[in-house]
């Protein structure tokens, strides 16, 4: 999987490393901004009211 990505990135090793870093940062950003905020309410920590909301 990661080997496949690495092979398909353009440029020499340095450019590929830089691109990989950008990709990782982009994935982390998407996770923190969109995926985790969606998943977090599924956990029990949000239930602080007494009317079962």
């Amino acid at each position: 999987m990661y080997g496949w990505i690495w092979r398909h990135l353009p440029g020499n090793a340095w450019v590929r490393a830089l691109l990989s870093l950008v990709l990782v940062l982009a994935v982390v950003y998407v996770l923190f901004q969109y995926v985790f905020p969606w998943a977090e309410p599924l956990l029990p920590f949000n239930d602080v009211t007494v009317d079962g909301q």
């Binding site: 999987m1 990661y2 996770l31 923190f32 985790f36 998943a39 977090e40 956990l43 920590f45």
Partner: peptide
């Protein structure tokens, strides 16, 4: 590789819940 990815995801999620929120 998938296992490593899932592990990283879980760690990131814990960081998100405990720290980032």
């Amino acid at each position: 590789e998938l296992c490593v990815t899932v592990g990283t995801l879980i760690v990131l999620f814990v960081v998100y819940v405990l720290f980032w929120t």
